[in-house]
Design a protein around this nucleic acid. Sequence first.
DNA 1: ACACGGATATTCT
DNA 2: GAATATCCGTGTA
Length: 206
Amino acid sequence: MTIHNFYDSDTTDQIAKKMLGTLLTYDSPNGLVGGRIVETEAYMGERDSAAHAFNGKRTASNEPLYGPPGTIYIYSIHGRYLLDVATQAKDVPQGVLIRAIQPTIGQEIMYHNRPKHGVELTNGPGKLMGALGIEDKLMNFQIIGDDKLKIDIDNRLEPRQIKTSGRIGVSKGDWTDKPLRYYVSHNPYVSGLTKAEVNIAHFGWK
DNA sequence: ACACGGATATTCT
DNA sequence: GAATATCCGTGTA
């Protein structure tokens, strides 16, 4: 199965949900790193008041959102770099923000890239990029899976339960509270998860 | 020049 | 947990 089949004939919110449990990997200069995606958010394009392409806004920096499905869209905010993947046909600026991963590959390298303890390694969109060692926008416009940065959708882990909520950190607007954030219930690497919600025995996987 | 954001770290109750 | 402090690229002027 190629990455392209994954996007075919699905709405962006469905794609965001289906990305949970897939494996994000990066063939970094220091070695292979990566982990299971445990938290995503869908951004629904021109009509979505929280989206970068709201009202058709199109600039040099959000141009990758307008690319074909699988186009990598890295952007900076508050001095961090965040990872988005465009999900729809060319010129349809919808995408999924990858907000957290459970590290499974090259953890020593990631702890070196980002010297924090436990879940602090990757429990946020800027944190996971720091851990992977991606601190620039050089991969913008690449198609995910074509080069160093990949999402492996085979052997996807099945979440026991997927929860939804409003999206984090978006400014007030009509779409602020729409349930377009998806996460693997009980997984400790989900951002902002309370201790009581974590299950250390199964991490939320079937 | 300048204000601000799809965030994170620190410093308190 | 809740209130700051700080991050720096980007858009607008």
